[in-house]
Nucleic acid binder design. Structure first.
Lengths: 191, 191
DNA sequence: CATGAATTTCAGAAATTTCTGAAAATTCAG
DNA sequence: CTGAATTTTCAGAAATTTCTGAAATTCATG
């Protein structure tokens, strides 16, 4: 299993990027390899392709399974485990988002909520809590949006992305139309 | 500068989360501290609050400046550097998004483009390239959306978030209305 | 241009993370 | 149950990252 130069380049890059996240180099490389492969690979294929130890691959695969990023396959008449990634990149994105939220956002939210329950002892604590409340509010808004959007099927999601910032333009126009139909009295708040 | 328990809890949590990203513990803690503080802090304040070495704080602050996450302030008649975070959490979010994109997404995009220029030597490379093209397409869609949305002022952005998945429902309704106005001939594609 | 307050740099120590090889566990066919 | 194929575990080696203290640098001021 000698890697072609193209595959090699991608695998090495993913290794580097991996370390920029929490994921380690080998895990990144294993994932890249599985992602590119047209058929499922077993642990020894990976050992051979990446030149790392068998046990390292075993641990890497375990981590990827914990992230729900790989699928386990069994070929009939073969006791070995084979691994792939899902075909659909959008599905991969959804999984990634879900797992990162679980690991990075949820714990922070719960710490913030915890702290915001307490009441402040002094002015410094009052200010600190106000800051945490701001952060909490921001994260809540983002996760609410995420929860709303994550269930969209791929084509709807693509549609939403394609719309981008124009959505707000649309709403503006709508507001204008509404306000023509319901002209505001002089001095009344601008709604 | 003894930290109050509330602040302490938040700072420690940020330290932990920091290591889950590329950022190290101290950098996370420094940021948390600055974020919560009602007035700018100088390096020695941070040393005292966190109990780490002066040089470590210096390096941490440098990293945070590289991320554009802190602001440098100078008090009149004081030669020391003082640091704060921006007041607006939405602005912080924008900066964070921008910097992470720069560090994590852009390099990947450029590697992908590089590889997709080459032409495949065999069937395996052809398949690998197709996979990379899928990933490239996905990232392009996401970054296009991001580029579109990142310029929105905070209230528009909040509006867009509030709308969430309902956007697509809106489009559906619009499509329905349009198709009533322009009934499709039998056998014609559903547009 | 000397002084001293403040900051930065950097070599190496300390801590942490990653990786390996050997041993243990698991699984299944015979 | 035995034994071969496969996977997992884990103690410690190797590599990497983080942190420190001491020295170097910067720079406003007398």
């Amino acid at each position: 299993m000698k890697l072609s130069p193209l595959t090699q380049a991608f695998v090495l890059h993913f290794g580097e990027m991996g370390s920029r996240w929490g994921i380690n180099r080998t895990v990144g490389q294993i994932y890249a390899l599985l992602y590119l492969s047209s058929e499922p690979l077993c642990a020894d294929d990976i050992v051979e392709s990446l030149g790392v130890s068998r046990s390292n691959v075993s641990m890497g695969l375990r981590e990827l399974q914990a992230w729900n990023l790989v699928l386990l396959k069994h070929l009939p008449g073969d006791r070995r485990d084979f691994f792939t990634t899902p075909d659909d990149v959008w599905q991969i994105l959804r999984t990634l988002a879900e797992e990162r939220k679980k690991r990075e956002v949820d714990p922070t939210l719960s710490v913030l909520r915890e702290i915001l329950m307490q009441n402040p002892a002094d002015e410094a604590e009052r200010h600190a809590q106000a800051r945490m409340a701001e952060m909490h509010g921001l994260i809540e808004q983002l996760t609410t949006w995420y929860d709303d959007v994550k269930t969209l099927e791929t084509d709807r999601l693509a549609m939403l992305l394609g719309l981008g910032a124009r959505v707000t333009k649309l709403l503006e126009v709508k507001d204008k139309i509404v306000s023509i139909g319901r002209p505001r009295r002089p001095g009344a708040p601008a709604s």
